[in-house]
Simulated assay, not measured.
Amino acid sequence: MNRRRFLVAAGAAGLAGCVGSSGGGSSDDTGGSTDDEPSGTPVSTHPAGANLDAQPMLGETTETLIIAFEDPSCTLCRRFEENTYPRIVSELVDPGRASFVYRGYPIIYPWGEPATHVLEATYAADADAFWALKDHYYAEQSTFSTENVYDASREFLASETDVDAEAVVTAAQEGEADDAVALDVAAGEELGIGQTPEFHLFADGVFRTTVRGAQGYSVFESALGV
């Protein structure tokens, strides 16, 4: 797929996140912000909620949502996944207070794109394997590269999940996940996302705010009002 990469405009220089560019890159700034997008848009008509039924989701509610745009190769996504995501799951998702939706948006380092395709192919085969592989990418992020991502993904899926690892990786390599990845990329591009991670929060079924960067748990809890 012909991918378009992003540069952050000068006016957004203070926003946090890994910044997409032709060579990849990241920021150590973890400060977040919200944009000027008006609140109140129903999730059903908001770009972040496009094709929501087809997205990996943890949780049962579609009224209170954290919709994440992340890149497996983004260092600040890893920081969020290691420090904040576990509390979101234990304190918001597991008690039924919110749901977490993952949308792959590979704009940082080159290996993030094939990894995102493998994630989508894995999700098509088994949701539990998807979440396990997603966690593995962030936990072992420094070990992945464009040269080993397929082999390393195959090895993990074969040893740690019940999916047919060879079939999943072959599906990703042969383009069977292209449409699913394209849906997430199109949603992110419509929203003008130029950095990861970025989170679109919905409460009572309508858009509440956008959070950018590796924010702490309290930011999400407060923004959602839960």
Results as ranks from 00 to 15, higher is better:
M1T: 12
F6D: 11
L7Y: 06
L7R: 15
A10F: 04
A10N: 11
G11P: 08
G14E: 10
A16M: 05
A16Y: 02
C18W: 03
G20Y: 02
S21E: 05
G23C: 10
G24N: 07
G25I: 07
D29W: 06
D29T: 14
T30N: 09
G32V: 10
D35V: 11
D36W: 06
D36Y: 07
D36R: 13
E37H: 14
P38V: 08
P38D: 10
V43H: 01
S44F: 01
T45E: 14
T45G: 14
H46G: 12
G49E: 03
A50H: 05
D53V: 07
Q55D: 12
P56I: 05
M57C: 11
M57K: 11
L58N: 07
G59S: 03
T61Y: 01
E63Y: 02
T64Q: 01
L65A: 02
I66P: 01
I66Y: 00
I67D: 03
A68Q: 07
F69E: 00
E70K: 00
S73T: 00
C74G: 09
L76K: 01
R78V: 02
R79Q: 12
F80Y: 12
E81H: 13
E82P: 04
E82L: 12
Y85T: 11
I88Y: 08
V89W: 06
V89R: 15
S90K: 15
L92W: 10
D94N: 15
S99N: 14
Y102I: 13
Y105V: 02
Y105Q: 03
P106G: 06
P106C: 11
I107P: 09
I108A: 14
Y109V: 00
Y109S: 04
Y109H: 13
W111L: 01
E113G: 00
T116Y: 02
A121H: 08
T122A: 04
T122R: 00
A124Y: 04
A125L: 04
D128H: 07
D128L: 04
A129E: 04
W131D: 09
Y137A: 00
A139L: 12
A139Q: 13
A139P: 06
E140Y: 14
Q141L: 09
T146H: 08
E147L: 14
V149A: 00
Y150D: 15
S153D: 13
S153G: 09
R154F: 09
F156R: 03
F156M: 07
A158W: 08
S159C: 05
S159R: 13
E160I: 06
E160N: 14
A167H: 08
T170G: 06
A172V: 00
E176H: 12
D179A: 11
D179W: 06
D179R: 07
V181M: 06
D184H: 10
D184A: 08
V185R: 07
A186S: 11
A187C: 11
G188L: 02
E189V: 06
E189S: 13
G192N: 08
Q195W: 04
Q195H: 11
Q195R: 15
T196V: 06
L201F: 05
F202M: 08
F207I: 10
F207N: 10
R208Y: 02
T209I: 10
V211W: 05
A214R: 11
Q215Y: 09
Y217H: 11
Y217I: 14
F220V: 14
F220A: 09
